[in-house]
Design a protein around this nucleic acid. Structure first.
Lengths: 136, 136
DNA sequence: CTAATTGCAAATTGTTTGCAGTTTA
DNA sequence: TAAACTGCAAACAATTTGCAATTAG
């Protein structure tokens, strides 16, 4: 699906800024911080403002077009949501490459927690390490 | 083990500020943000500075005396490390109560990821929801 | 005594907001 | 043309830093 279609499907206006943001994220093989994204968007569309980046990141995440990944060192990471439905991410600490994981630990845990009286509503499972290329 | 012993064991000086921080965290049944912790420490030891809180949080975490837990809405949460060794946390979104989890999803996943060429070095698994009391 | 620790004030970093002007559908 | 969106500048919140004074061991 093209970027334009993607946006229209979510009833979002197709602006040059949005297209730039999605183009960068779509081309990127790694997860990007808002700052990194900003830098790259600037090359594609000079003059774009940082607040536009942030507003769009929030908007696109709320529409399910992007994923947000936490980072230990503060500042979140973003990527195109390439996989439908619930999933987690594996991220290379060296090159930033990421891939989606099918496995979700909550499946086997939910029942157990319920039994203990705890009702889970959200969880986070993120894996960091080194991909094949980067592990030397 | 007393707070003083805890600190000495890690070769940290026993200062009133550190004792206050650990006293608050030890008494607290919930995970605390740096701000919340600060407020409570202030009651115990007026005049304590915020930078002292942050410096000590970092120090105590590096020594394994505290745990840091992420929070979706930014700002981390802290608690005394009540359980030895590697573990994850379950946190109530209403009252902040937390408990440690034995289960770690990486055990069964590590081999699988290795097989795919990925070497995991770190991971995060955090569960949020409502505890028995708060779920109405 | 001296290395560790603290308070203070200022700087950073990352992100958010109000508003007026512009653009998309 | 109306609602959505953007740029701008300023505000914010959380955290970090340099440094001089203090304190624990």
């Amino acid at each position: 699906m093209s970027i334009d279609e993607m946006l229209r499907q979510k009833k979002l206006k197709v602006t040059p800024q949005r297209k730039a943001i999605l183009t960068v994220l779509e081309k990127s093989e790694s997860v990007l911080s808002a700052q990194e994204l900003f830098r790259e968007v600037l090359e594609l569309l000079p003059g774009t403002n940082f607040s536009t980046i942030y507003r769009n990141l929030d908007m696109l995440i709320s529409k399910g077009i992007l994923c947000r990944i936490h980072r230990e060192s503060g500042g979140d990471l973003y990527e195109i949501r390439r996989k439908e439905g619930h999933h987690h991410h594996v991220v290379c600490k060296s090159c930033g490459a990421s891939f989606a994981l099918d496995f979700c630990p909550m499946e086997e845990l939910r029942r157990e927690l319920q039994k203990q009286g705890f009702t889970p509503t959200e969880h986070r499972f993120e894996i960091y390490g080194y991909c094949d290329k980067c592990r030397k």
